[in-house]
Simulated assay, not measured.
Amino acid sequence: MNIIYLVFGNKMDNYQQVYFSAYTAFAHKNTEDRIIVVAEDPSLFHSFQDEIEVIPISRELIKEWEGKYQFFWRVKIKALQLVAEKYPSDSILYLDGDTFFYDRMDALREGMKNGQNYMHVEEGKLSKLSSKTERLMWSQMKEKTYFNVKIDENSTMWNAGLIGISPKHFDCLGLTLGINDAMCADNVPRRLIEQFAFSLGLNEFSALKPADHVIGHYWGNKPEWNQIISHFLKEIFMKDYSLDKIIERIKQMDLAQIPIRVKESSTQRKLKNFIDGFYKNKKPVYIRK
């Protein structure tokens, strides 16, 4: 099984998240599992040495992968197609960087070997979801058909922080890409296009199952997790831990004590932004050469 991460751009938090998630994967994977990072800056993963495979991608390739409609998250679909072509017999377990393993992945591995596809968690039927983007998507797409997949009241949105694909069903990636591009051409609101395209494309080949019993996804509490991860990485690099020592340290952490989602006060956020914008630091002093 290939455990896959994708990271591009120059935001260091994103690379740190992949580091931490990969370490949790080491703590729970089997010897035959392979960790692959598709990265725009492969030099940031030299510390793993030969323990992971890094596939470099250029800025030019990323722009090509964004396609005709220059859709940012189309890159995820293309990256998975790249790995599927390289390893056509191995299951794909893709993870966003803001994830972590907290249990063994044996059931996922066996499920994909037997033809099961997974996404992180079911969010609900598009026709019943309540966010502004989801309501707009439903009003625009209901009863339409994209690549022979009809959008109806049972069409379900799944969270794409995890994508598990059986090698028996790699053709679902082509279907996902086609649906994604068709929705872009139809000017569907972009925020959730890639996620919904994966939900539809994978489900056509295998009724999706959730994987949140194995993987945590902290998209709803990134600031706290980023701080914890930054502290963790400082510790292991400053103390020059071996990989075995890092894995031991990961196993000691009680990740269930850190919330994966918190409800942020919109009033607090607006006040903070107002105060930060109103009060600026003054009279900076620099060294003289």
Rank of each mutant, 00 (worst) to 15 (best):
Y5S: 08
L6H: 04
V7H: 03
M12G: 15
D13E: 15
N14C: 15
Q17T: 11
F20Y: 09
T24R: 03
T24L: 04
A25D: 05
F26W: 03
F26R: 01
K29W: 06
N30V: 09
E32C: 13
E32V: 11
I36E: 00
V37W: 00
V38I: 08
A39L: 05
L44P: 02
S47C: 12
S47P: 11
F48C: 04
D50H: 09
P56N: 06
I57A: 00
S58F: 09
S58L: 06
L61S: 11
L61W: 06
L61D: 10
E64A: 13
W65K: 05
G67C: 05
K68Q: 14
Q70P: 02
F72A: 08
W73G: 04
R74Q: 05
V75R: 01
K76W: 04
A79I: 00
K86H: 05
P88D: 06
P88W: 03
S91N: 10
I92Y: 02
Y94E: 01
Y94F: 12
G97E: 10
T99Y: 07
T99M: 07
F101Y: 09
Y102W: 12
R104N: 14
M105T: 05
E110C: 14
E110L: 15
M112W: 06
N114I: 08
N114Y: 13
G115C: 11
Y118S: 05
M119H: 03
M119P: 00
V121S: 12
E122A: 14
E122K: 15
E123N: 12
G124K: 02
K125L: 09
K128F: 08
S130T: 07
S130W: 07
K132I: 08
T133C: 13
R135G: 04
L136H: 09
L136Q: 11
W138V: 00
W138H: 01
Q140F: 11
K142P: 07
Y146K: 03
Y146C: 05
F147C: 10
V149H: 07
K150W: 06
E153C: 08
S155A: 08
S155I: 03
S155Y: 03
T156Q: 06
M157D: 04
N159P: 14
N159K: 07
I163L: 04
G164Q: 04
S166T: 02
L173Y: 05
G174H: 08
L175W: 00
N180W: 03
N180A: 07
A182N: 08
N187L: 15
V188R: 01
P189H: 07
R190F: 11
R191Y: 14
F198I: 02
F198P: 00
L202Y: 00
L202M: 06
F205T: 02
K209E: 10
H213C: 13
H213I: 07
W219V: 08
N226Y: 10
I228S: 05
I229L: 07
I229K: 00
K234T: 14
M238E: 15
M238P: 15
K239E: 15
Y241P: 09
D244K: 06
I246G: 00
I247H: 00
E248G: 10
K251G: 13
K251S: 09
M253D: 13
M253H: 11
L255S: 10
L255M: 15
Q257V: 11
P259F: 00
I260D: 06
V262M: 09
K263W: 11
S265C: 07
S266D: 13
S266H: 12
N273A: 14
I275H: 14
K282A: 13
K283N: 13
P284L: 08
V285K: 12
Y286Q: 12
